[in-house]
Amino acid sequence: MPIITIEKNYLDLFSEYLYKNMGIYIEDSKKNLLAQKLAKLMQEAGIENAGEYYHFIVSPPISERQKELKNKFIDTITVHKTNFFRENNHFEFIQRNISEIIETSQSAKFTNELRIWSSACSTGEEAYTLAMLCKEILPANVRPKILATDISPDSIRKAMEGIYKFGPEDNITNYYINKYFTKNGTQWAISDEIKNCVTFRLFNLVEPFPFKNPFDIIFCRNVMIYFDKIVQEKLVGNFYNVLGKKGFLFIGHSESLIQIKHQFTYHEPTVYRKN
């Protein structure tokens, strides 16, 4: 049986496909890694020819198997690093400033909702963290309405299941575990109370934003590191448009809007605010 090799031109085609369809920019130094991932995917799919696999992924899915493999492709190519209370100072920031956030929120005023969008929720930890935080700090008359989206169907599926294992890298305290989770063997299931605060949807951030109402808070952390400046600028512009007046945008700790054009007002590191 031959070794699975991905020819350079197919590697470039895959890169181009990823950039055009998901905004994921793969620089030349990372193409090796992409090749590794593709080899794994192809082996799992039982496809030896890179061209065949490329067309299989790129063409619109017609069979259930093709759909599954495409999902697997997206899931493997994208990175799903996430934890409960990851980069906790953002949650602390919300806790500190909650009264001002509610005061400036239009939806809190008119529909008694605080609208939050976890725009790359992966397996749901960030969205559930926000939901738990809201349960703790929101006044009784304001309900959290959290939208959580991701590009990977497999991740969304796991997020909707809401079953987790807690490892040493999870920042979650026993207080939250005991209050909002129930033990299920070696795993923990998030409570329905929290689940009901979060709506999970499949959404590709490079597509046009379809939202009807403005958000008060948007989380887009450690996503733009996979995009190039052009896609970042467009995305940040779109975030600005769907945020309400004085709404907050939170980005990852290594990220900054310094190098791109945007309308946000810098609030503190990794926290930006609409005027």
Partner: peptide, 14 residues
């Protein structure tokens, strides 16, 4: 292995 292992058919967000 033709299918991804943890496919839960009940949840199909897409």
């Amino acid at each position: 292995k033709p299918l991804p292992k943890d496919t839960d058919k009940s949840v199909r967000p897409e």
